[in-house]
Design a protein around this nucleic acid. Structure first.
Lengths: 119, 119
DNA sequence: TCCATATTTCAATAATCCTAGAATCATTGG
DNA sequence: CCAATGATTCTAGGATTATTGAAATATGGA
């Protein structure tokens, strides 16, 4: 991930509605959610959600696909992973201990429990 | 890390000069760098670097301490680690495979090579 | 005390971002 | 083809953020 994309991704995640959208899409899985459903969940107008979705798409964190009249948005897991890695590398650059910090604390999916990971 | 702090941190990292400052401070280590030295490295005015340093401090990613006439800024490693963890948890929420992704690719300090980690 | 250094604060401007409503586009069904 | 639905684009506004130069603050040394 180059710096430009990282800057754009951080910018995309620095807004409440957009962060909430990313969270919802990550949980929603590969099928994603329709723009209207996202707007409803977030409690914002169609116009507004469209603005934020475009911003997120521009940064590469999400993608869209049309299904009939609806447009479904889904999280780009690879981009999210790249962003985590970018951040971690910058941290680690001077202090590998930070990575240790991240891994030692109770992560969301522990490094040892890989039973539910799709290979 | 609560959502507000995450939003603020992402915002802080979404600006070129600020991202460069964080990188420099992480590499510089716990002693950090004086504001003037940072301004020089970044090629920006004292006024401008002061503005960005304040923004970074407000988000909790860096701290300052005065040493004689200079004010030294240093990275808050714990906050950076918290942010990585926040991002990773949001990713992992729906897809533990992402964490796998992050760990499998060649990280800056591989998960297996912990020889240089200060305990 | 007076001066130089290091940095911040203030004030003004420029630039960018967010929100909202009206208009427009794409798709489906009658 | 026409109407309805789902979503985007356009336009304008208000709000926040970024940059700049001048003035102010803090520290240390002659």
């Amino acid at each position: 991930m180059d710096e430009g994309q990282a800057l754009s991704s951080f910018g995309a995640l620095s807004q409440q509605t957009r962060l909430a959208i990313v969270r919802a899409l990550v949980v929603a899985g590969p099928d994603g959610l329709a723009a209207g459903a996202i707007a409803e969940r977030m409690g914002v107008s169609a116009t507004n959600v469209s603005f934020h979705l475009k911003e997120l798409e521009r940064s590469g964190l999400i993608s869209q696909r049309r299904v009939s009249r609806s447009i479904f948005y889904s999280a780009n897991y690879a981009s999210l992973a790249d962003l985590v890695k970018f951040l971690m590398e910058d941290c680690c650059a001077g202090h590998p201990a930070i990575r240790e910090n991240v891994e030692r604390r109770d992560g969301c999916c522990s490094a040892t429990d890989k039973s539910d990971v799709v290979a």
